[in-house]
Simulated assay, not measured.
Amino acid sequence: MKTVVVYAGAAVAEIAGCFAFWAWLRLGKPVWWLFPGLLSLVLFAYLLTLVETDAAGRAYAAYGGIYIVASLAWLWTIESIRPDRWDVAGAGLCLVGAAVILWGPRG
């Protein structure tokens, strides 16, 4: 359960940080938007270090599925664009892949 919470927090932090840059560059927001965006990205990187796994690459790979689902949630809640069935199906596949990567039996 801790892993899922950490991944969810990391996803929100990463998306918020990247969106701050997007808003500055593409939406004409003031340059000061970059400062909280950078802090958010630092928080994202820190949170990924809390995942209980023996390899950073495995933690990052499994995180990808959570990031995709969180990105679609952002799309819907912040940008007011509802994900379509293909978005949902793709996100579901990614979550299955993330679970296999993170919790698959290792010998």
Rank of each mutant, 00 (worst) to 15 (best):
residue 15 I to A: 05
residue 28 G to C: 09
residue 102 L to S: 07
residue 24 W to G: 00
residue 98 A to N: 01
residue 41 L to I: 12
residue 90 G to D: 01
residue 97 G to N: 03
residue 82 R to G: 07
residue 12 V to Y: 06
residue 15 I to T: 06
residue 50 L to N: 09
residue 33 W to K: 00
residue 96 V to L: 15
residue 29 K to P: 00
residue 89 A to F: 11
residue 37 G to Y: 08
residue 51 V to P: 03
residue 76 W to T: 06
residue 56 A to S: 13
residue 32 W to P: 07
residue 48 L to T: 04
residue 102 L to Q: 15
residue 36 P to S: 10
residue 5 V to N: 07
residue 59 A to F: 05
residue 48 L to G: 09
residue 81 I to R: 15
residue 49 T to D: 11
residue 66 I to V: 15
residue 61 A to C: 14
residue 11 A to L: 08
residue 51 V to K: 00
residue 5 V to Y: 15
residue 67 Y to S: 14
residue 82 R to M: 13
residue 88 V to I: 15
residue 94 C to R: 01
residue 78 I to K: 10
residue 43 L to Q: 03
residue 79 E to F: 06
residue 33 W to I: 04
residue 7 Y to S: 08
residue 98 A to V: 06
residue 31 V to F: 15
residue 36 P to C: 11
residue 24 W to E: 04
residue 48 L to D: 04
residue 107 G to L: 12
residue 19 F to A: 13
residue 62 A to P: 10
residue 69 V to F: 07
residue 14 E to N: 09
residue 11 A to T: 10
residue 15 I to P: 01
residue 72 L to V: 08
residue 85 R to G: 14
residue 30 P to N: 03
residue 59 A to W: 06
residue 22 W to M: 04
residue 24 W to P: 00
residue 48 L to Q: 06
residue 97 G to V: 03
residue 75 L to Q: 10
residue 13 A to W: 08
residue 1 M to A: 14
residue 47 L to V: 12
residue 106 R to L: 09
residue 9 G to T: 05
residue 98 A to Q: 02
residue 101 I to H: 03
residue 24 W to C: 01
residue 20 A to Q: 05
residue 104 G to V: 02
residue 89 A to Y: 02
residue 45 A to K: 10
residue 21 F to D: 00
residue 46 Y to A: 13
residue 65 G to C: 07
residue 43 L to D: 05
residue 37 G to W: 09
residue 7 Y to L: 13
residue 81 I to L: 13
residue 55 A to D: 14
residue 10 A to N: 02
residue 65 G to N: 08
residue 103 W to T: 12
